[in-house]
Amino acid sequence: MVSLVLLAAALLVWPQLKPLRRLRPQGKREITLPPYVWLAAAAVITYLLAGVGGLIAAAVIAMTGRRILKQHKRNKALRQATEALSSGLGGVIDELRAGAHPAQAAEGAAADTPAPAKEVLKAAAATSRLGGDVERTLRELRQPLLTRAVDQLARAWRVSAKHGVALADVLDATRRDLDQRAAFARQVHARMAGPRASAAVLAGLPPVGVLLGELSGARPLHVLTSTPAGQFLLVLGAVFAAAGIWWTQRITEVEP
């Protein structure tokens, strides 16, 4: 037990190693601890404070929070990429209606479009300039954030090439659909702010209850960290809380 405490303390007070930094190249003098060192320190401290059950409960909550944060970032990036592609298509449509060649229109719009939508327009421009199959190029393009939108764009290009429909018209229809989907996703995200806040409050009630019990002298922390039944309940409560938070995130997030 004493050795574990000393190990945790050593990890937390890891030296800065300034002499070593001075000997390193000027652009690489910053020395940072690997993430697993902090993870190991947190695991040791959690085990010492709350036992095996507390360690498992903390791991469940941490993994759930990491997954929710990752999904939230992905949805945000997806909305931004969809809006960027829609804006880029608007530029392509304007150029086409002004009489520009599809390759020139797509290349000109790509210059003012952020990634990853920029790569989509550049691929379409390059293929169109060489007289290739734009639909096939778009379908083979690997853009995880724009898979659905790129597939829709490929179908629009195929309709124009196969049936002789003006490319500007089918791209305009595609752009309007992307705009509607992005607007719907933003609207749902804004309206679900209240339910997400309520879920966060409900998820925080159990720790508050434990704290109130500790202040009243009931000693729930001793039960949770020092008895087999308490350890089991600690893990079970963490699993239920993580499942509730994850499910709330699933039903309140909409992909554009």
Rank of each mutant, 00 (worst) to 15 (best):
K28E: 15
K28H: 15
R29E: 08
R29P: 07
R29W: 00
R29V: 00
R29Y: 01
R29N: 03
R29D: 06
R29M: 05
E30V: 14
E30K: 12
E30C: 12
E30D: 15
I31F: 14
I31H: 13
I31T: 14
I31K: 12
I31Q: 15
I31N: 09
L33C: 00
L33T: 03
P34M: 10
P34W: 14
P34A: 14
P35G: 09
Y36S: 07
Y36A: 08
Y36T: 04
Y36D: 04
Y36L: 13
Y36V: 13
V37S: 10
V37P: 05
W38G: 13
A40R: 00
A40G: 04
A40S: 00
A41I: 06
A41L: 00
A41W: 04
A42V: 11
A42Q: 07
A42E: 02
A42L: 08
A43Y: 10
A43F: 13
A43Q: 06
V44K: 02
V44G: 04
V44F: 01
I45P: 01
I45H: 03
I45T: 14
I45F: 10
T46M: 10
T46P: 02
T46F: 02
T46N: 00
T46Q: 01
Y47T: 05
Y47H: 04
L48S: 05
L48Q: 14
L49T: 11
A50T: 02
G51Y: 00
V52Q: 12
V52Y: 12
V52G: 04
G53P: 06
G53S: 06
G54P: 09
L55T: 10
L55N: 02
L55P: 00
I56G: 01
I56P: 01
A58H: 07
A58E: 05
A59I: 05
A59L: 10
V60M: 07
V60E: 04
V60W: 12
I61T: 10
I61Y: 11
A62E: 04
M63I: 03
T64G: 09
G65I: 09
G65Q: 03
G65R: 00
R66Y: 10
R66V: 01
R67A: 15
R67P: 03
R67Q: 13
R67I: 08
I68E: 08
L69K: 08
L69F: 12
L69G: 07
L69M: 02
L69Q: 05
L69V: 05
K70F: 12
K70D: 15
Q71K: 15
H72T: 10
H72E: 12
H72N: 12
H72R: 14
K73V: 14
K73W: 10
K73I: 08
R74G: 02
R74K: 10
N75M: 04
N75S: 11
K76I: 11
K76T: 11
K76Q: 13
A77G: 11
A77N: 14
L78R: 01
R79E: 15
R79Y: 12
R79L: 15
R79V: 11
R79I: 13
